[in-house]
Amino acid sequence: MHRLYVLPTLIINVVIIAIPALLTITLAFFQWDGISSPRFVGGENFADLWHDRVFWTALTNNVIWTAIFLTVPVGMGLLAATMMLVARRGSTFFQVVYFLPVIIATAITARIWQGMIYSPVTGINGLLDRYGLEMTNPLTQTATSLYGIAVVDLWHWWGFLCVIFFAALRQVPAEQVEAARVEGATFWQTMRYVLLPGIKPTITLMLIMTVIWSFLVFDFVYILTQGGPAYSSEVLSTLAYRSAFYDLAVGKAAAVSVVISLFGLCATVFYIRAQAKEFEE
């Protein structure tokens, strides 16, 4: 009987994720508006994407996004976590505050930044502009829209990494740190040769997850710019969403989803290999 305990989880998971995922892969080879019967078109959806400038913009933006999130928040998180380790007093307080943006709904974070900071009318940007500093709303410029969104996501995200790194750092044996100190290692040397190697598995895992999450980014782009202006901040997930629900080009949306998944799949292989070590124990 107890062998059946996994069944509820598996049934829900297969019905919601596995079967529709297989359908998406199939749909990528069909033309479908969501209503009439699908028409098989072979690789045409993918060929269209190949010649679609918006698709390449979106893909490039995802790659830029991944590069930003593999470096900036990881660096900020590591640095702040190490500093919290050094400071010790007050680390719980800092931890709680840094984590606050993580628990605020993305829709709300997006609106706060949009209205209270970026807006030329009601935001800090407008205020600075009136004081004579030349400020523009980054979300409305094609050159800066993606970075404007990235800043919001960074604000929302880095605290999570910081808290996770801090939890891992605290598990590095204190004797190792002490030994390095006694031998006269500087702060940076301690970090480089003792602390970072000590939490390497955690960093690796977070980097892998960052790659996966970077190709999934949706909420902030969809709420802040809808991929605009002029598709300058389009990412693959918003492109897929719009194709499916606005243009009713479900086949194209499915093809984009398959592309997103291929990138995710590479990261997933690493993810499972990293996790597998733990399950072998």
Partner: peptide
């Protein structure tokens, strides 16, 4: 790690 878009539309 499966992207939500992979199963959202169907």
């Amino acid at each position: 790690t499966a992207p939500i878009q992979l199963f959202l539309f169907p």
